[in-house]
Design a protein around this nucleic acid. Structure first.
Lengths: 249, 249
DNA sequence: CGGAGTCTTGAGCCCGATCAACCGTGGTGG
DNA sequence: CCACCACGGTTGATCGGGCTCAAGACTCCG
């Protein structure tokens, strides 16, 4: 059930709020205008909307302008694995190559706004703006690295470590995107989402969160995350890699 | 301990055995010659050699010409997660972007031969050969899809389903790369590798393999895989996505 | 105020981990 | 040639982390 509300060009690319962030790669005005020309629509969906249907072709390619979403794979018997969470600036639909079926679904976690592009024109990027194509590839590689982290968590970390890792990771990303308002983050994923992302049951995810709360590593209630001890969580998760301080996009 | 044996240009790109495979994307002669010019060396390593050290910078970018390898992440306390297995045609070192530390290690499973390129020149690809850059991006997205599958397995499949899925997956890839010799595949990964790829213990992986053997779904002994019932394995793993019959690279 | 979705808590169980031998094979050096 | 050892595979016994089932509490919303 799509409640598309096509507000074309509501946000001119030159004034894109994401561009103000130090975590986002800067582009030349020329490049930005090119992106603006490629952009075919700006679409909003409600929480719970299916942005990409698993196993279906979709001619469009999106960029997440605002809100939360997640990529997932489902099995015929109902089991579901969340592959990663999507935050503003993330690409949607890159993996499902030109004319291929989407190998995964994408669902909105909150009200989201997407910038839509057509797949066909992707080719123009490579021909006319190699610098942007380079960025595109980099984004793809970057997403892969995040999934690698997720795979390590699900494969080799305990439940406590997994939850700690995920919260620390999302908190860190949200921070870099300046989504925090004095130590508080609106956090749309439910415990069931966290469970599906970590390969845990919802019940055990709940108990695990309580332990982290009792240890004073985080506070999570009513869709609001706060009191996050990022370092403590990462230490608990045995995540010793240095924080990337460089621009992310 | 590297036993590099630099046999530059031992395999001219025009005669690359991989190009004969229908699963590999075709390129124009012009593109192939460009690749040939970019190629700086052809290097062989023995099984067990570290092709990429975790957390270390490496200026080089590789292509796996022959042999098996795997990407992995290790935790300080010795836990290890294999992210995916690499077969001929796979790229090595794409994720560890220009001047970044490698976020994962890569190790040879068998004797391998690599084609080496320098990272700096990657940029030339984007500027001069957009078609190749496009392929590069596609390869990256393709690898991500495979990791997505792995994540689903580790997160939501039972041990039996995981092993079935992995064997079916590797068998399918090897088949498309024409690595099978009348129903038999030389299979370098040990049970410990399989365990590390699936988030299982080595002991339980052993017991699980025995069940699959007893059910007549596969035969695996002495580094040789055979008698693989690919469909049976995929059915067991609840893998119902249609086989991709299109070219892979 | 009812209902749906989310969170919480308890009890019991099972899948897969861990610990500990033991076997077979192949390589190495005395 | 054989003693030795390292490594991969196999087997048994036991343990425990996380699952399942089930019920109840809270929150939000129409």
């Amino acid at each position: 059930m799509r409640t598309e509300q096509d507000t074309l060009h509501a946000t001119p690319c030159r004034e894109c709020p994401l561009r103000r962030l130090p975590a986002i790669k800067t582009n030349t005005l020329d490049e930005i205008d090119f992106i603006q020309r490629q952009k075919t629509a700006e679409i909003s969906y409600r929480a719970g909307a299916a942005l990409v249907q698993e196993g279906q072709r979709d001619e469009r390619l999106f960029t997440l302008l605002s809100g939360w979403a997640f990529r997932f794979k489902a099995m015929p018997d109902g089991r579901r694995q969340i592959l990663n969470f999507l935050l503003p600036g993330d690409l949607i639909g890159m993996q499902g190559r030109l004319f291929d079926e989407a190998p995964h679904g994408v669902e909105a976690l909150s009200t989201v706004t997407l910038c839509a592009f057509t797949r066909e024109r992707t080719w123009d990027v490579f021909r006319e703006y190699p610098e942007l194509a380079y960025t595109l590839t980099w984004l793809c590689a970057h997403e892969e690295r995040m999934i690698d982290d997720g795979l390590l968590s699900v494969g080799r970390r305990t439940a406590l470590e997994r939850v700690a890792m995920l919260i620390a990771h999302l908190w860190s990303r949200a921070r870099q995107l300046e989504m925090l308002a004095n130590g508080v983050l609106v956090f749309p994923p439910t415990q069931a989402h966290i469970a599906d992302a970590l390969g845990l049951s919802a019940v055990h995810t709940n108990r695990t969160l309580q332990i982290l709360r009792k240890r004073g590593l985080l506070a999570l209630a009513n869709g609001v995350l706060s009191g996050v001890d990022e370092l403590g969580l990462k230490r608990l998760a045995r995540y010793d890699l240095p924080e990337t301080s460089r621009p992310l996009y």
